[in-house]
């Protein structure tokens, strides 16, 4: 009798092992990588703030795959090979999607077959030009210009410009240890904006911080940022 139980257990084990292969799908292995760009320049956005959707037509149940855009405007996703429709929801990003010829709309067709790199051209409301960071003691200063890209009926005003400083590489509205703002109406010269803020004491002590400037556009939820700069402090 004892032997029989043992056989059953072995049988069950082999069944269990075998089922691994039977009921599992292959993992997705094609990567879609790229950046959100304007004339080839990446659009920097907040951490975990901007995403776009990939829809795969042909299935009975429709549900998008959300792809999050990183702070430097890049994205990457591991996917199955398929024909996807890429849509940036209107509420996402400090930019307007460009229409393309293939679909006569802002939907982008992505025929994924193996690894692919795709830069998505969009039109931002503003671009941050020539950001310069400097430090004196613990005070981080930034100087930059703002270029208004959209000037037609869709143009929007600047609500505020902000300088953010953080002790880690995540720097934006919600991730900072120091921040300072200038309201849009108080900006005298769009080509020469200066902001400075003092970094508070950091525990455990570190002699560097990360900084970047951002622009909040009125009526647009997501901010556009400069690239993140690592600066030495005292």
């Amino acid at each position: 009798m004892k032997i029989k139980v043992c056989y059953i257990l072995w049988f069950a084990l082999s069944l269990g092992l075998a089922s691994c292969e039977l009921d599992n799908y292959e993992a997705p292995d094609s990567s879609l990588k790229g950046r959100i760009v304007y004339n080839g320049e990446p659009i920097n956005v907040g951490y975990d703030q901007v995403y776009f959707e990939l829809w795969e037509p042909g299935w009975q149940e429709k549900s998008p795959i959300n792809v999050v855009v990183d702070q430097d405007g890049s994205f990457s996703a591991l996917l199955f090979n398929a024909n996807y429709k890429l849509i940036i929801p209107a509420s996402q990003g400090p930019f307007i999607s460009n229409p393309n010829d293939a679909t006569q709309s802002d939907t982008i067709l992505v025929n994924l077959n193996g690894n692919q790199t795709l830069d998505i051209e969009v039109t931002p409301y503003y671009m941050i030009r020539n950001p310069q960071f400097s430090v004196s003691g613990r005070t981080v200063s930034a100087n930059f210009g703002l270029e208004k890209i959209i000037t037609d009926a869709n143009a929007k005003d600047v609500e505020r410009v902000s300088l953010y400083v953080n002790k880690t590489y995540f720097v934006d509205l919600g991730n900072n240890i120091a921040a300072t703002n200038i309201n849009g109406g108080d900006i005298a010269d769009m080509n020469n904006i200066s902001l400075s803020v003092e970094a508070p004491a950091i525990t455990p002590a570190q002699n560097y911080v990360f900084a970047r400037v951002g622009v909040k556009i009125s009526g647009v939820e997501d901010m556009i940022f400069s690239p993140i700069e690592k600066v030495q402090i005292q």
């Binding site: 549900s63 998008p64 509420s91 509205l173």
Partner: peptide, 29 residues
């Protein structure tokens, strides 16, 4: 806390929309 414009009206989930394609989605999501 960060309340986004898409939070003003809660998302109608994909299951509901799949069952009834006449449902339009809420804005800013």
């Amino acid at each position: 806390d960060r309340f986004r414009l898409g939070n003003y009206y809660s998302e109608i989930n994909d299951g509901i929309v799949n069952n009834n394609p006449l449902i339009v989605r809420n804005p800013n999501q």
